[in-house]
């Protein structure tokens, strides 16, 4: 399987928000680094986008994309669900503790674990 293009097409934006591009780029980077293969990725993503609660118009595509990445990372033993949850909360606390206009750094988390 070749490197996937961002989902099309003529009628919609491929990335609605920066996090989607970041999630896209993480997967491209991991696949190119051989952490997983594209077909492995396609299977993981496919499982998510075919969930019965998926939006018909695909607006939640990147939410599936990200969930697929999390699951694959857990399957590969790279992380645990708890680690992802914990760091997500840490990033949010760090953002809230960062003055507007300053770069958001994880070190800004006032309550590190």
């Amino acid at each position: 399987m070749n490197r996937p293009e961002p989902p099309p097409g003529p009628d919609g934006p491929a990335f609605a928000e920066p996090w989607q591009a970041q999630a896209f780029a993480l997967v491209v980077s991991l696949a190119e680094g051989g952490v997983f293969g594209w077909s492995e990725w396609a299977d993981a993503l496919s499982a998510e986008v075919h969930r019965p609660d998926a939006a018909p118009d695909g607006r939640d595509y990147y939410e599936h994309w990200l969930r697929a990445l999390e699951r694959l990372a857990v399957t590969k033993g790279l992380t645990t669900p708890g680690e992802v949850e914990g760091l997500s909360a840490a990033w949010r606390r760090a953002a809230q503790a960062t003055p507007h206009g300053k770069p958001i750094l994880l070190e800004n988390d006032p309550n590190p674990a």
Binding site: L26, L30, G86, S88, W91, Q96, H100
Partner: peptide, 26 residues
């Protein structure tokens, strides 16, 4: 409030942090 990360952004940052720490992504 720009510095309120939405949940998806925070999750991506969390994953990136983990993967960078492991040296799997640059």
């Amino acid at each position: 409030h720009d510095n309120d990360l939405n949940p998806m952004t925070a999750r991506v940052k969390a994953l990136e942090t983990i993967l960078v720490r492991k040296g799997l992504v640059d």
